[in-house]
Nucleic acid binder design. Structure first.
Lengths: 240, 240
DNA sequence: CACTGTCAAGAGCACTGCTCTCGGTTTTGT
DNA sequence: ACAAAACCGAGAGCAGTGCTCTTGACAGTG
């Protein structure tokens, strides 16, 4: 993250960032699959071949944009989680109301998605054909679910999580898969962890439907529906 | 649906279907955004310009494929709903167990999506850039949610739907939006209808996550998770 | 000063969607 | 039955794309 030592390294880092920046602009206007390296180079006043000194291919540029998008969304969710906790208590370390925090995270995720719909589509839409997401994307991609898990873990230790009576205990392969999540939120019961995954898929399904126009004719505009869903999903995982 | 009168009309209809068929093959192998009219025409042994006699543009071909995909998925859901009802009773008109039917619909939708992932991505993935879905797509797109609504309506009149006590009554704009659904399932309480939309978004969010690789590392393979989610969502809307 | 690695530039390849024109065939109207 | 109209496939061509390769200029290091 530091400025490179030599002038060359600094120039290279700056230009790399500049390329990504104009790529994001193009993304916002023409969409992901119409992203053109030549158009970017034209915008930057350089020749298209020069761009390949910075990104070996269009896919590599897309990968960089995808990772940036995951991180931006993750940061937004984490910030919402953190500031909601502070706002209620005044102190930075004490926790606020878990339900408020839950709603703040939901709102932040949706807000980011609506502000940067093309970048959202890039990471949660159909995968680019012939493009295999490298392993580098899974860590940034995990930040949003980690926020939810962390929130529930803290709510549990604060006595604000009440395991729903009708949540079935996972068995078989599902129990094994849940173990991975137990390691991340050890005090949250497995039944609630399964529900957390359900809720996680609901959140992004709902946002995708809103952004991709699937709700037109029923729940669009989706503001009130979204908040209702957020509250009902909080209750679904046992947040009180 | 009938064969055209003149030989030309029949040939035209056949060739149109053949174009869509090879387009679907290409779709399955190279993906939607790499779908090439020239490659299709090459496969068909004709020149690319001739293809424009049948589809005015690439977008128009995509629209046709999208409508076909919606209809195929809708048929699969309707068939599952119908056959589940018959299987339990032997009669074609009597209803089976609503919960079995619910699970059958879930399984059918997921099965179709896994069988035709690229066609699924075409309709539930990111919208094609610069492509506006025409009004013709909304009716076929509504078939799956209509299956769920119909199922709940029948379950309600059969006394198999128990409105959850913690489902909040929709108010304000949300209540207005729910009215559209009331017209489709008049006996289902509005609170349950809102939950139906939530469940609807969850279903497709879950399938999208599975297909687009978002579940890798947690709930993949998703068979058991999917069934658990299906059952818990049935309970969430009050199916008993 | 000379050498080595990095850089932008340019030409070029194979591909794309799409348009237009040109003959030939089929359907239709009189 | 015959002419007019509609339709069809072929081919050339345009503007655009991602990507590769070569060339000449520059900066950093011994």
């Amino acid at each position: 993250m530091n400025a490179g030592r030599t002038a060359r390294e600094r120039a290279r880092a700056e230009l790399t960032e500049e390329i990504k920046s104009t790529a994001r602009e193009q993304l916002a206007t023409v969409g992901a699959e119409a992203l053109s390296l030549r158009a970017i180079s034209r915008e930057l006043g350089m020749v298209s071949s020069a761009l390949y000194r910075y990104f070996a291919s269009r896919d590599e540029l897309l990968t960089a944009l995808i990772i940036d998008a995951y991180n931006a969304l993750g940061s937004a969710a984490e910030a919402a989680s953190g500031s909601a906790a502070e706002a209620a208590s005044g102190s930075a370390s004490a926790d606020g109301d878990p339900l408020d925090e839950w709603l703040a995270v939901y709102t932040a995720v949706r807000g980011w998605a609506r502000t940067y719909p093309q970048e959202y589509a890039l990471i949660y839409g159909s995968p680019i054909s012939g493009y295999e997401a490298p392993q580098t994307t899974v860590e940034p991609a995990a930040r949003v679910p980690l926020v939810l898990l962390g929130l529930l873990q803290r709510a549990q230790t604060a006595g604000r999580l009440e395991t729903p009576v009708d949540a079935p205990e996972p068995t078989g392969a599902l129990a094994k898969q849940t173990d991975v999540l137990v390691a991340l939120a050890p005090d949250v019961p497995p039944a609630v962890l399964v529900r957390t995954v359900i809720v996680w898929t609901q959140l992004f399904g709902m946002i995708s439907f809103e952004l991709f126009g699937q709700l037109v004719g029923s729940m669009d505009p989706a503001d009130e529906f979204f908040e209702s869903a957020a509250r009902q999903m909080a209750a679904f995982v046992g947040l009180r």
